[in-house]
Amino acid sequence: MEDSEKPKLVWFLIWKGVVYVPRGESYVAKMAEYANANYVFSDLNGTGSAKVTLEDLLLRGSDADVAVYSSYRVKNVSDLLEIDSRLSEIKAVKTGRIYRISEDYWQLGLLHTDVVVKDLAAIYHPDKFKDYKPRFFVKLEK
């Protein structure tokens, strides 16, 4: 697959303006690679997560095609904008391609990484996975 066809992915959690993102060698970044997506913070060395500035999230995320919010406490887009209204600048939030993790992601998702990767592939490339419903990710409603 051509690099230009890979969707840009931003995966984050935000709390009072402080943004948490997985690092470049984390399982999230690896799964983005398996599912053919460009993770915007892949240059952050190390595993685990990092606290980054909001301006970096907006800068790198402003043209992200897909966004994943790594919490299940957000139910729809307006919940997300209540946490920080400035997230509306992210392309994926504008176009509605924003997902949250499911309630059982931390329990079952990590056991079934194959399903998670397939879910992600379906999210990143919806045209190749018509009729497939992701098991561990939920699209945020408008």
């Binding site: 709390w15 009072k16 303006g17 299940y72 406490r73």
Partner: peptide, 19 residues
């Protein structure tokens, strides 16, 4: 536990959330 995580993050001060 997830709520606790978010709460702990709150206790680290930052001016970043101010709009």
């Amino acid at each position: 536990s997830e709520a606790v995580h978010q709460f702990v993050l709150w206790t680290f001060g930052s001016f970043s959330g101010v709009t």
